[in-house]
Computed example of a mutant assay.
Amino acid sequence: MEASIGYDPSYVWRSILGTREEVRRGIKWRVGDGKDIQVWKDPWLPGASSGLVISSKPNLAVEDKTGIFAAPQCPLCQTVIPESLEHIFLRCAWTQRLWFAAPVSLRSDMIDALRPWLESLISGADPSLLQLIVMLLWAVWKQRNDVLFQNASPSIEATINMAFGVLNDWLAVQEQHEPRDTTHDEESTSDLPTWKRPAPGCFKLNIDAGWAGEHGQGYGLVIRVHEGECFFATTSFSPYRLSPLMAEAVGVRWALAEALRIDMDSVIMETDLVEVISCFVGRKCVANLETVIQDCRNLAVQFASFSIVHTKREGNRVAHALAAKASDYQNRCWWSEFPSFLNSAILADVFSVSI
Rank of each mutant, 00 (worst) to 15 (best):
G6R: 06
Y7W: 12
V12A: 04
G18Q: 06
I27D: 14
W29S: 14
D36I: 09
W40A: 08
K41P: 09
W44L: 06
S50C: 14
S56V: 10
P58C: 03
L60M: 14
L60K: 10
K65W: 04
F69P: 15
A71Y: 11
P72M: 08
P72E: 08
Q73E: 15
C74K: 11
V80E: 11
E83F: 05
S84C: 06
S84Q: 04
H87K: 02
F89M: 09
L90E: 09
A102F: 09
I111T: 03
R115S: 14
W117G: 09
W117T: 10
W117R: 11
D126R: 10
L130D: 08
I133K: 07
I133H: 13
M135C: 07
L136V: 06
R144C: 10
V147M: 10
I160M: 12
A163R: 09
N168P: 04
N168M: 05
N168I: 05
W170N: 01
A172R: 02
D181W: 09
D181V: 04
T183D: 10
T189W: 00
R197F: 04
P198N: 01
P198E: 04
A199T: 14
N206F: 12
I207L: 06
E214N: 05
Q217A: 13
G220N: 11
V222G: 03
R224S: 01
Y240E: 07
Y240Q: 11
M246F: 01
A247D: 11
V250Q: 11
W254H: 12
R261K: 06
M264N: 02
S266K: 13
M269A: 10
E270Y: 14
E270L: 03
E275T: 13
I293V: 14
Q294N: 12
D295A: 02
V309E: 03
H310C: 02
T311D: 05
K312F: 15
G315M: 07
G315N: 10
G315W: 10
K325T: 09
A326V: 01
R332W: 00
C333Y: 01
W335P: 00
L342I: 01
A345W: 15
I355W: 13
